[in-house]
Design a protein around this nucleic acid. Sequence first.
DNA 1: AAACATCTCAACCGCGTAGGT
DNA 2: CACCTACGCGGTTGAGATGTT
Length: 210
Amino acid sequence: MEGEGSSSSSGSNMNNKRANSSLEAEVRKGPWTMEEDLILVNYIANHGEGVWNNLARSAAGLNRTGKSCRLRWLNYLRPDVRRGNITQQEQLLIMELHSRWGNRWSKIARQLPGRTDNEIKNYWRTRIQKRVKQSESFNLQNAMLADEASPSDSHTNSTNNSMAQMIHPDEQMAINTDDIPPQLSPDSTDYFWTFEDFWSTQSPDQDYMK
DNA sequence: AAACATCTCAACCGCGTAGGT
DNA sequence: CACCTACGCGGTTGAGATGTT
């Protein structure tokens, strides 16, 4: 279904070293060079973005697929791409939107100007999801301990504090809980989690970045 | 200082879908 | 309606960076 041959090459032999093989004349893969970036930026400056396969064919000196060009532009070269750490505000928004929409990264990214779906997806997987998993096991341990200590007492009550209580007042404006449906949409069950899960692992002054 | 482990993120792939013929 | 092409999305990979022993 794709006209640019993505299916014709095995994913297991596609890094930079391999790109310098005899096949390079056909299509380059792997990390972009500064020269390639310049060619792409100049071409888009002159012709506008879109029609990526045309671009890939027409831009002299650029032996990339249209798909690769699109990705490079959208995720890295576009002037309005924000680079650098995700702010705490952005993090909260990502968490809220993910709880609402699941892994709809491009949809989430549209709510964060300058951030790309790829960046948000990576951020979620490497930072947030990791903490959620940690907190799940942590909560499980706590639950077991609580059951041993006082079987009649519900340990779940402790997680029923509203998220607003745990978030700095400045950040509460980013969260409109009225917009959050009572339950997730059916397609988001893979990554169901709660803010309580996340914040239970955080101390107030903790640095969220790296 | 070296070896090993873990993390990050740019880039790839496969798939679904929209639009044109 | 069937087919083809192009685009966009989400999942995954792996090289390089960073941390730990």
